[in-house]
Design a binder for these strands. Structure first.
Length: 887
RNA sequence: AGGCGCGUAGCUCAGUUGGGAGAGCGCCGCCCUUACAAGGCGGAGGUCGGGGGUUCGAAUCCCCCCGUGCCUACCA
């Protein structure tokens, strides 16, 4: 200490003491309170060191107080090296300490290190300790464990040191606030747009409005329909409304008898009726407008519309907002300098004479040639010294962003729109030679040099900044580089960005704030954060660990479709995927199942099926059942995809194809197929066709291959076919219920077979009671699927039979010879126990006054129904057990 | 240390406004029934991590604990 005494500090990096410019203590630390404001004399260093700014720095350094110092750590006093430690850097800035750099970029002590100059940093550490010991200034050496930043490539310890870098000032409110708002609540904006409307006159235009499955209106008209850019349709009626409006007349008092120009606009599920441009009626339901037949004419109109839109970025899953939010809230200025050899160079030139930093852009030049050449240099496409041939060659070569055009075309189209940019060797040569003072010809090299002039002193003695831009900064510039203004208006904001969570900071956030700042719109509406794929033990896949699954190996073993389907079905929002090779097995089996089912359909379908298509009336109950289930699957898959629930979509498709289409429908119609029943063949093809379309995004190859063999296919690829959507007319509730009952009946019969140990080849008689309606018309199907010799209605249990029960029926299966019924008895006892348990729970519920009072009516009713079912079942089981016991 | 998740059948996981516990694989029994043995039919298996609370009612909502994973910060 100045004036005698010592202050003791602890450090893990003794060599940095050469750059210390203060000692810090906690403001409330009693031990050091007296010392704050006094000065210490730093040992080992020269009397004068040099700060970054070039000032002289004495070895007389202040004792300062700072809250960031922890009293209980070390000695409670910490040496401050602002130039070589991140926290010290912060403290140094706050207390206006000088920054003394003692280690250079090569890791060697510089001239500030005095006697230690020229030593490598680790060697210097040893030497410093040795010297301190010699001087008696070393109190003690302790082992301490702490983490140190390492280079991810060469593993050498990272040296923290200050240097001059370029920053992008994003800590500003103008950037931070909108970036938060756009994600958390959305930002209102108003836009004026020219809406282009097409009016189409067609031969046959069908207008259909359905509400809850009921047809409100179905008309075929010959009128003018219109289609907007966004794909919504218009019907347009000029003058007096025609017959087609009779329906509306009845429903709408407003419309009644009024003349005017009527328009019908379909927007999703709503249909608007406009008179003279004003909405007078809105219908909602499944609306479809189809232009069929020949189009007789198209007229186009443009009308200005003011559109109020909300800029909103949705993270999917939503939780990631919480990841984004704190980062934006603590946004620090973004260091965009990178000291690497590739990347966009920073467009800054330093004047060697007056030291000014010059930022140039092509706007600094008036002539188009100057602008072009400047851009080529700034982009690194040509060097600062260049030949005319090089320029022309570059301008004529393919553009990176738009490979179908040359660089010159790109400049013409995207950068200097409307300007006549013609360039050739001769006119460029003429220009450089005669018309500009901005170029210097270097005779011996036969090259030109563009003379950039310092904006302060006019000197041409400039040196370009060596640093390049952070790649993420370049990425953030993407929307500003690839769109022409009219393209941008159409394509921006984009719908969806898919990326990993670790990219939220790197790119997502940065694209959001640059877009909001420069374009006032969000860059994308949805950000889907995909799952990370881990190994079967939950570890990240890494090459060093050797737990990486190579997709190419998987494709080799299981097929590309299995890989794709598996990944999709394991993708549950917000959850990482644990992937082991086993996972692919099931998808492979599914693909195989689909293949075989398709084989069955295709080999049984006559080539000319299309020419004799049946009408809906030719379809049977089971056809309408499977079509209903298909339709429900279509709805669920669409909903799932819309909300990015890929796993659910896969599950629904898997279940439908395997458990309903293959295991039940195909089995049911095999008899009809043998007889070339058109309804069955049609349904098989209809369902398979839809299934292929539905599955195509998940299993593109196999579906395309099967599609190619379908009789219904045409020249177009399956990939281009319309994706199925829910069709409300194709819901057949009664047929669905009937077949579900039938399935229950057959399953019960099968269960009885299995329980008495019948082999599939053994056909026996089945008696039934209370199932006349279920069986009616399905006798052959039941006999086939339950492997029966006869199917006989009865009122009582015949001898030598075992009984089974459904919700509304009893079955009695013939027992061919003396079979041990022990297993059966055990099964029924187990079922009795289960039913009793369930019954107990339901009865408990139903005897609870509060439940009856407060629960919704449907729930109470449902529980009553369940109770009745269970009671019935219990009764049947018990009576059957009695019979068995008697035997 | 703080934040965010996750603990459901032997294993991997679904379960979307709280209302009779599900899938795949594995396991057990029977079967080559002409789309498919990479298959068919049937079956077993779960106090939904533990405790408390809200509610007529909790796998589901709230609190605490245990286990586990990730992210961020700190480490003189």
């Amino acid at each position: 200490m100045e004036g005698g005494g010592y202050i003791e500090v602890a450090t893990t990096r003794p060599e940095t003491m050469l750059g210390d410019t203060a000692v810090a203590v906690h403001p409330e630390d009693e031990r050091y309170r007296e010392l704050v404001g006094r000065f210490a004399l730093l040992p080992l260093v020269k009397e004068e060191r040099k700060s970054l700014k070039g000032d002289r720095v004495s070895r007389r350094i202040p004792i300062i107080a700072d809250r960031r110092v922890k009293k209980e750590f070390g000695t409670g006093a910490v040496k401050v090296t602002p130039a070589h430690d991140p926290l010290d850097f912060e403290i140094g800035k706050e207390h206006h300490l000088p920054f003394v750099k003692v280690i250079d970029e090569r890791g060697i002590i510089n001239e500030n290190g005095g006697d230690f100059e020229g030593l490598e940093r680790f060697k210097a550490r040893e030497e410093v300790v040795k010297k301190l010991k010699e001087l008696g200034l070393l109190s003690k050496v302790e082992k301490i464990r702490h983490s140190v930043g390492k280079c991810y490539r060469c593993k050498s310890t990272v040296e923290p040191l200050v240097s001059v870098q370029w920053f992008f000032k994003v800590s500003d409110k103008k950037i931070r606030e909108p970036s938060l708002k756009v994600v958390l609540e959305g930002i209102e904006r108003e836009e004026e747009r020219l809406e282009r409307v097409e009016f189409i006159r067609g031969e046959a235009i069908t207008l259909r409005i359905l509400k809850e499955g009921e047809i409100l209106l179905f008309e075929e008209v010959e009128e003018i329909a219109g289609r907007r850019e966004d794909g919504t349709y218009y019907l347009y009626y000029q003058g007096e409304p025609r017959e087609v409006f009779n329906e509306f007349y009845a429903k709408s008092k407003v419309l009644n008898g009024r003349r005017g120009n009527y328009e019908v606009i379909k927007e999703g599920h709503t249909l608007k009726i406009l008179r003279d441009g004003e909405v007078i009626e809105t219908f909602s339901g499944e609306v479809s407008v189809d232009v069929g037949g020949r189009i007789l004419g198209i007229r186009r109109e443009e009308r200005p519309v003011k559109v109020k839109e909300t800029s909103k970025v949705n993270f999917i899953p939503k939780n990631w907002e919480n990841f984004y939010k704190p980062w934006i809230e603590n946004l620090k200025d973004w260091c965009i300098s990178r000291q690497i050899w590739w990347g966009h160079r920073i467009p800054v030139w330093y004047c060697k004479d007056c030291k000014k930093e010059n930022v140039f852009s092509d706007e600094d030049f008036e002539n188009i040639y100057d602008k072009l050449i400047f851009n080529l240099i700034a982009d690194g496409k040509i060097r600062e010294e260049f030949s005319v041939e090089e320029v022309v060659k570059v301008l004529n070569s393919k553009n990176f962003l738009k490979p179908h055009m040359s660089n010159l075309d790109f400049y013409r189209e995207y950068v200097y729109r409307g300007q006549n940019v013609g360039i050739s060797e001769s006119n460029l040569f003429l220009y450089l030679n005669n018309y500009s003072k901005n170029y210097q010809y270097l005779k011996e090299k036969k090259k030109w040099r563009f003379l950039l002039r310092c904006k302060a002193c006019g000197s041409t003695n400039l040196k370009r900044e060596e640093d390049v831009l952070d790649t993420w900064f370049s990425s953030a510039l993407w929307p500003f580089g690839v769109f022409k203004e009219d393209e941008r208006r159409k394509l921006f904001p984009t719908d969806l960005l898919i990326t990993g969570f670790d990219i939220i900071f790197f790119w997502v956030a940065r694209m959001i704030f640059t877009s909001l700042y420069f374009y006032k719109v969000e860059p994308f509406k949805d950000v889907y954060i995909h799952a990370l794929i881990r190994d079967e033990f939950g570890r990240k896949m890494s090459k060093t660990l050797g737990n990486v699954i190579d997709p190419l190996d998987i494709i080799e073993k299981y097929g590309a479709d299995s890989l794709r389907f598996t990944l999709a079905s394991l993708t549950v929002q917000g959850r990482d995927i644990r992937l082991s090779e086993k996972s692919f097995e099931s998808a492979k089996h599914f693909a195989n199942k689909l293949w075989n089912a398709s084989r069955f359909v295709i080999m049984n379908t006559p080539k000319d099926l299309l020419s004799e298509l049946p009408s809906v009336s030719d379809l049977k109950t089971e056809d309408r059942w499977i079509i209903t289930l298909l339709n429900e699957t279509v709805r669920e898959v669409n909903e799932s995809l819309k909300s990015y629930e890929f796993s659910r979509a896969c599950q629904k498709l898997y279940d439908f194809v395997w458990n309903n289409f293959c295991d039940w429908y195909i089995e049911m119609v095999k008899g009809r197929v043998r007889e070339r029943d058109l309804g069955a063949l049609y349904t098989l093809n209809y369902v398979l066709d839809k299934v292929l379309r539905l599955l195509h995004p998940f299993m593109p190859f196999i579906t395309e291959e099967i599609w190619d063999n379908m009789p219904t296919k045409d020249e177009e690829s399956l990939a281009l076919k319309e994706y199925p959507t829910f069709i409300p007319q194709e819901v057949f509730k009664e047929d669905k219920e009937r077949v579900e009952e039938l399935k229950d009946f057959i399953s019960t019969a099968r269960y009885l077979r299995s329980v008495i140990g019948l082999k599939p080849s053994q056909r026996v008689k089945l008696y039934y009671r209370g199932a006349e309606k279920i069986v009616e018309g399905f006798e052959e199907t039941v006999k086939e699927l339950a492997r029966l010799s006869e199917l006989i209605p009865t009122q009582e249990r015949p001898k030598n039979t075992v009984a089974g029960f459904g919700k509304s029926f009893s079955l009695y299966l013939e027992v061919p010879q003396s079979i041990d019924l022990k297993a059966l008895k055990e099964n029924y006892k187990r079922r009795e126990r289960k039913v009793l348990e369930e019954l107990r729970r339901v009865e408990e519920k139903l005897s609870n006054e509060e439940f009856l009072k407060k629960a919704p009516k449907e729930v109470v009713e449902k529980n009553k129904r369940i109770r009745e079912e269970l009671r019935g079942e219990l009764e049947k089981i018990r009576s059957f057990l009695e019979v068995l016991d008697a035997n």
